[in-house]
Structure formats: structure tokens, C-alpha cells
Simulated assay, not measured.
Amino acid sequence: MSGADEETRQARAALARIAEPGDEVLGRWVTALGPVETWRALREGDGPPAGASPDRWAGMRLRAGNTSPEADLARIARLGGRFVCPEDREWPRQLDDLGPGQPVGLWVRGPCSLRFVALRSVALVGARACTDYGAHVAAELATALGDRGWTVVSGAAYGIDGAAHRGALTTGGSTIAVLACGVDVSYPAAHRELLGRIAERGLLVAELAPGDHPTRWRFIQRNRVIAALTRGTVVVEAARRSGSLVTARHASRLGRHLMAVPGPVTSGLSAGTHRLIREEATLVGDAADIIELAGDMGDLAAPEAAPVVPRDLLAPQVGEVLDALPATAPATVEEVARGACTSLAAAGARLRELTSLGFVERVGDRWQLCRAGPRHAGPADVSGDVPA
């Protein structure tokens, strides 16, 4: 696929200005007629295609009368951006999974190839009014994913989204902000500097034409692009009625991996993630868990090693003798042998071994636990007190 010709690009740019994100009726027109014919029908008003109500057709005709794709394409070029069409090499083919609801095109700002950086990408989403715990977890996950060469995708909103983008940027990794407004609109205004950094080192992506402002519906529809663009979605923190749960539902419907991070059971902002884990999401706690699920075959998380204490390194028979020693008073070899259910000779040999390791000390003809703890732990260099 060499790319869209100029007529197709202008037609798609016009339709991106006219249509609302996720408009499946328009998507079916484009599939049936092609973008050029659909734009011509809207511009010239030949009559509504199948499935268009008179009111909807009239509204779209009004928008078409004020649409100048040439001006929009010139505007995005002045911003250093571009308009990416499904006919272009840069188009991420996974967006086709949205069917007739897929974007007619995407306005993009940033130096990276959208198709390339989205190949290994994960969405990190969550509550706007997040807790310090949620912001910390999002930043840590994004930083670790960036270190492993994964792209972090989010929506540039307050809270979890912002923390995820910042975490990815700290490592020099790629991050994509999918916006519910034009790529030249700083929303939220407090994220102007963050959006600028993303445009310099990652990508700003939007279905809305330059200058368009967000609405509630556009935020909701933006979430389907986040879900479709990535291999999986991680909900870091969410209340029971959170916009991030919309992204989760899209990810599940599209067959993407759905993950969630557990939080304190006392926090209302963990209620949504806990419900996802209970119903369909996979619990994840770090980047390795995410990559094991969303990555390529063989991209496994390292096995978790439980904390090791010196006592763990003892042979089972030696540990049984140590367990047989009373906690508060010395014991004879016979008492130890009886407690460990072994012979006197074996008990004596193991007590001498425990003495050399610093677990046990001899007091006359009796043996007791060494209160100072073991001097060394055997094969592993592990130190620490041993509970009596």
C-alpha cells in the first residue's frame, strides 16, 4: 500500500471534520461508496445514502458547507503533523477491528511512526481523581514498560493518564496520547507542557480535526481507539463508574488482553478494578506481568523468588532437629532425638552441624538455641536473625 492519493486524503479529511467519532452509519457509507463519493454526496447533496435519517443528513450537509479539507491539511502541516489515512503505510491495521466504527483518518503530531510504535503498545488508564497510590503505580508501570521497549498509550487526562505519560517520558520511551479534541488543542489546559513533550518525543493522535474541542461523547468514543490501538489495556485505578471501564469493555469486546491492578479494599477508587478482576480481567502487579500476557510467545515474567532466611537452606533432617530444640531451655541429645524422631547418633551429628552454622550452642551436656543467630547460612550468602 503506497498511500492515499490527494483526492482520497482530502475526502477523508473532510469526513473527519464532518462526522463524529465512531459514526458507524458514515463508516458504512465509506465502505459502500468510497470516501471520495461520500464526500461528493455530502457536498453536492444528491440525496442521503441508505440508513441516513432526514435530520441527520441535513445536519451533516450543514457541516459540509463549512468544511475546507485543504485548510485543515494545511493547518496540520504548519503544526508539523500529518493526516494518516487507512490507505497509508503508517496506518495501524489493528484499528480495522473496529469495523464500520473505525476512524476515517487520524490527525497525528510527533516524530514517530504510528504504525511502528503501536506494534508493542499497552494502554494504561484509570481515574482522573486518583490517589497517590494509583499515580505511583501508573508511573512505575509506565517507566518499566518504557525500559523494556513498550509504548504506553493513554488519554492525557488528569490522574492516571498523566502519570502514565510522565512515567514513559522519564525513560525516553515512546508514549501516545489519544485525544478527544484536535491535536492543536491543549486539553486539559494544565497539561499544555506535558502535551508539548509528548508531541516532541511521542505522538498526539486524534480523530477530531484541528481546532475541535472535546465533548462528553467524544471522550467516550476516544476510549475505543485506545483499546483497539494496543495489545492490551491495564486499568490501574477506577471507581465503579469510571470512564476507564469503558476502555476496558472495548478491549474485552475487541479480544484484547484486559488487566487490572488491585488496590486497597477500603478505597472506593479500587472498586472498579476489583470488579474487573473478579469478572474478567487478569490481575497484574508489575510490568513483567503485563508483558508476559501481552507480549510475544516466550516473553515470560521471571519466576518470583520468595524471601530466603538462613533456616530455609538447611536440609530437612537438620531442620527437624532444630525444630526439636525447646525455645526457652537447653535440652539433652536424648530429648532432641525423641522430638525429631531420630537416633541419638543422628541427633548428635546434626546438633554439631547446627553448632558450626551458628544456630545452636552447647551448654555442658545440653544444647540450646543460639540467641545471636547463625553466623552463616550455608550455600547462599543470606544474613538475618532466626526466630526462636
Rank of each mutant, 00 (worst) to 15 (best):
G3I: 05
R9Y: 00
R17A: 15
T31K: 02
G34N: 06
V36Q: 05
E37K: 09
T38C: 14
R43A: 10
D46C: 01
D46K: 10
P49V: 11
M60Y: 12
R61D: 05
R61V: 10
A64L: 07
L73M: 10
R75L: 12
R78L: 15
G81H: 02
F83A: 01
C85N: 04
E87Y: 00
D97E: 12
P100E: 00
L106W: 02
W107V: 05
V108T: 07
G110K: 05
L119A: 14
L119D: 09
A123N: 02
A127R: 12
R128S: 09
H136Y: 11
A142R: 10
A144M: 15
L145V: 13
V152L: 10
A163G: 01
H165T: 13
R166Y: 06
S174L: 02
T175F: 05
A177I: 07
C181I: 00
V185K: 00
Y187S: 05
P188F: 04
P188L: 04
A190N: 09
A190T: 08
R192K: 12
G196N: 11
E200M: 04
R201P: 02
G202I: 08
L203N: 09
R224L: 07
A228V: 04
G232N: 10
T233F: 01
R241C: 09
G243H: 13
R253S: 15
G255Q: 14
G255F: 06
R256L: 02
V261F: 09
G268Q: 09
S270W: 01
I277A: 01
E280A: 15
T282H: 11
L283Y: 05
D286K: 05
A287C: 13
A288T: 14
D289L: 14
L293C: 09
M297E: 13
G298F: 01
D299H: 08
D299K: 03
P303W: 04
A305S: 07
D323N: 11
D323P: 05
A329I: 11
P330K: 01
V336W: 14
A349W: 07
L354F: 04
S356V: 15
L357C: 06
V360C: 02
V360Y: 03
V363W: 06
D365I: 11
D365V: 15
R366Q: 15
G378R: 14
V382T: 03
